[in-house]
Design a protein around this nucleic acid. Structure first.
Length: 419
RNA sequence: GGAGAGAUGGCUGAGCGGUUGAAAGCACCGGUCUUGAAAACCGGCAAAGGGGCAACUCUUUCCUGGGUUCGAAUCCCAGUCUCUCCGCCA
């Protein structure tokens, strides 16, 4: 959420920056609405003052007049509320502005590779895809998932299910012990307010699974990422600067409709309606976002280092970033079967964008109230990690070696073979 | 599902229909004292919005939305949430 005052002050600049996010916007009338709004506020305040003075004076002869003023105020109020909602509707649908060091571009083609790490393995046989491997191991079952649930679901079974658990525990342990994150096991359902706070609503309602609960007002959604629930921990709060930064980690299921991705990644478990993800969230003083983003990305990439998976780090362009982000690094892991890098983590700084929506503030060193900075990142997506291990650690006979760091989490199993 | 209780500033917690934006305590900030710290004492300390270059000033806000009243944190109605007890259940 942007501050209307800032927009008012630097309108042209604002329009320019928002255009970089590829928004076709109808911003022309926001200044006009703002002007009207402020006029109404001023008129209202005059009347309110008058009314207040009358009631203070306790002068009975003025009571009738006060009544009249009340109806006038009511009138102004309805007018103002209408305009205020209009302004809010516009503001709440505007994406965050990109930082200056973010490459400008329409889409992922303008992303900038920052670094490549790890060794891409040379196979002396044709590497199979994860779904071929999973199928021959009889440990990934898409057909039964289709039967019980529909497309874009999968049954992970036996040793691969264990591997999935192992990945989750390994990542959690690492972030807790080495990176100072606090472990949270959160609700997987978020209310409308929280979804608004992190920016999933109102614009991306179509991507969300909404629950039918027998309640009148409060809408509930399955979380598309733990970011929603972890970030909203601090909703409506004024935090003590001493407690910052707050760093949370959670391993949760995530639920996405993947609306609009028809025909994309339909094979395998790259793109599912439900998947596990270990999520990192940081709440920081707003001038520390940039540093925290570097730190967070390192925390995520360290997992790939430990798993000895080859990957590259990419700085997303203005057109490829998410709605709430001001700067985003993606980590992309190498998938031999596709012969390319695929996203496995996305780390974003949102600046004060989400904090404004959530009303999360802190007192700075001179005791002024300021909005916090929020960041979130995957550390990492579990499903895609599983895929990456299957494909990168496969042997010619279809068996899978277990990455060294995971062996203790697999009860010392070091290879997965079909029975 | 049945029966009660409650929702007030960063936190805890008073509150009478009329200088209550709100007592008190804690926390926080500044000062005195101290070699330093602590303690003690003194002072400051809500947020959002409007106007003003500024000093400053005005308005709104005591869960939310209605209502009564010249005037509502305080009275009435509806809703949301929280807690306690009973029942049921992982």
């Amino acid at each position: 959420m942007h501050n209307i005052k800032d927009i008012r002050k630097n309108f042209d600049e604002f329009v320019n920056s928002i255009k970089k996010r590829n928004q076709d916007l109808k911003l022309e009338n926001i200044l006009e609405l703002d002007k009207k709004n402020r006029n109404l506020i001023q008129n209202k305040e005059i009347l309110e003052k008058e009314k207040k003075d009358i009631s203070k004076s306790k002068d009975k002869s003025l009571f009738e007049k006060s009544k009249k003023i009340s109806t006038e105020i009511d009138l102004l109020n309805t007018q103002q509320n209408k305009i205020k909602t209009e302004i809010e509707n516009i503001l709440s649908s505007l994406p965050n502005l990109a930082l200056n060091d973010v490459p400008v571009g329409k889409d992922e083609k303008s992303n900038v590779e920052v670094e490549t790490k790890g060794e891409i393995r040379k196979f002396d046989f044709k590497p199979k895809s994860h779904y071929e491997l999973g199928d021959s191991l009889k440990m990934l079952d898409f057909d039964v998932a289709t039967k019980t649930s529909g497309t874009r679901f999968v049954f992970v079974k036996d040793k691969l299910a264990q591997l999935e658990r192992a990945l989750s525990n390994f990542m959690l342990d690492t972030h807790i012990k080495e990176n100072g994150y606090e472990e949270i096991s959160p609700p997987l359902i978020a209310n409308e307010d929280s979804m608004y706070g992190t920016g999933q609503l109102p614009k991306f309602e179509n991507d969300q699974f909404e629950l039918k609960i027998d309640e009148k007002n409060d809408r509930k959604f399955l979380i598309p990422t733990a970011e929603v629930i972890l970030t909203n921990i601090v909703k409506d709060k004024i935090l003590n600067i001493k407690n910052l930064p707050l760093r949370y980690v959670a391993s949760t299921s995530c639920f996405r409709k993947e609306a609009g991705s028809y025909g994309k990644d339909t094979k395998g478990m790259i793109r599912q309606h439900q998947f596990y993800k270990v999520e990192l969230v940081s709440i920081v003083e707003n001038n520390k976002c940039a540093d925290e983003l570097e730190r967070m990305t390192k925390c995520a990439s360290a997992i790939l280092d430990k798993l000895k998976l080859p990957y590259r780090k990419v700085l997303l362009s203005t057109g490829d970033m998410g709605f709430s982000a001001e700067k985003t690094y993606d980590l992309e892991v190498w998938l031999p079967s596709e012969n390319k890098f695929r996203e496995i983590s996305s780390c974003s700084s949102c600046g004060t964008f989400q904090a404004r929506r959530m009303k999360t503030r802190y007192k700075n060193s001179s005791n002024d109230t300021e909005f916090v900075g929020t960041l979130n990142g995957s550390g990492l997506a579990i499903g895609r990690s599983l895929i990456a291990i299957l494909e990168n650690y496969q042997n010619a006979d279809g068996s899978i070696n277990i990455p060294e760091v995971l062996i203790p989490y697999m009860n010392n199993l070091n290879i997965i073979k079909s029975k």
